[in-house]
């Protein structure tokens, strides 16, 4: 039996590894924003480098998983759903890497009083991503847990909306130049978008879960 399931186990491990990468990406994103806001730019640069590496590794792992699923005609009924989930989860990882790249290139100036809000926003966004990953894992093994985790992700996404709005209101009430205001708003918006993307993945996941019920 073990011999028969050997290939399956390998692929299971690859999928787990891929999901681990998204979690790692989220953790890196969280710390790197903190480093940026604290002015530890060297460490921020390391983080950026790390997340790029994670992203490219994730891409090749995802491709390997997709090829295997197709070549060995595994889970034919749910293959489309699984591939869709993995690809959209990949977008979340890409978005985190892109946002860090934007920070690195544009070096936005964040007002000191807004920094805690940005940290809060980053936390909520990455928590949404983590909850999304747990929901995907449950889809593979424990269907009845999917809903709980999706709800968690949704909660954090709503939190990001609130925090982001708070940031925008505070920014636009200050007397700094409009260009700075727009710049800060833009970065808050991009961090918020990560949670939005995680929410999209969860929407997809809830439909796929209905299909997976016997």
């Amino acid at each position: 039996m073990d011999l028969l399931l050997k290939k399956t186990k390998e692929l299971e491990m690859q999928i787990d590894e891929y999901l681990d990468m998204i979690v790692k990406g989220a953790l890196t994103f969280r710390t790197s924003i903190r480093h940026y806001l604290n002015g530890q730019l060297d460490r921020f640069s390391d983080d950026r480098h790390n997340i790029d590496e994670i992203e490219s590794k994730g891409d090749s792992l995802r491709r390997a998983i997709e090829t295997k699923l197709y070549l060995e005609t595994l889970i034919p009924e749910f293959r489309g759903d699984v591939l869709g989930l993995l690809e959209s989860a990949d977008k979340v990882l890409n978005m985190m890497a892109d946002t860090l790249a934007q920070f690195d290139v544009e070096m936005p100036k964040i007002l000191e009083e807004l920094k805690p809000l940005y940290i809060e926003l980053t936390d909520a966004s990455t928590f949404a991503v983590e909850a999304m990953v747990t929901a995907i894992r449950s889809y593979f093994t424990e269907l009845n847990k999917v809903r709980d985790n999706i709800n968690k992700a949704m909660y954090y996404e709503k939190e990001t909306d609130k925090i982001s709005e708070k940031i925008k209101r505070t920014v636009f009430q200050t007397s700094i130049d409009l260009c700075f205001k727009i710049h800060m708003r833009y970065f808050a918006y991009h961090i918020e978008l990560i949670a939005d993307e995680a929410e999209d993945v969860c929407d997809r996941l809830s439909i796929a879960t209905i299909k997976r019920h016997l």
Binding site: T8, L74, F140, L214
Partner: peptide
């Protein structure tokens, strides 16, 4: 059989891929 299998699957938490392999067998 459906009720039994559904109950078993809820309990043993099989990975979708392993379930797929076992279904083929």
């Amino acid at each position: 059989i459906f009720i039994i299998i559904a109950a078993i699957l809820r309990k043993i938490k099989l990975h979708i891929l392993r379930l797929d392999a076992l279904t083929r067998i």
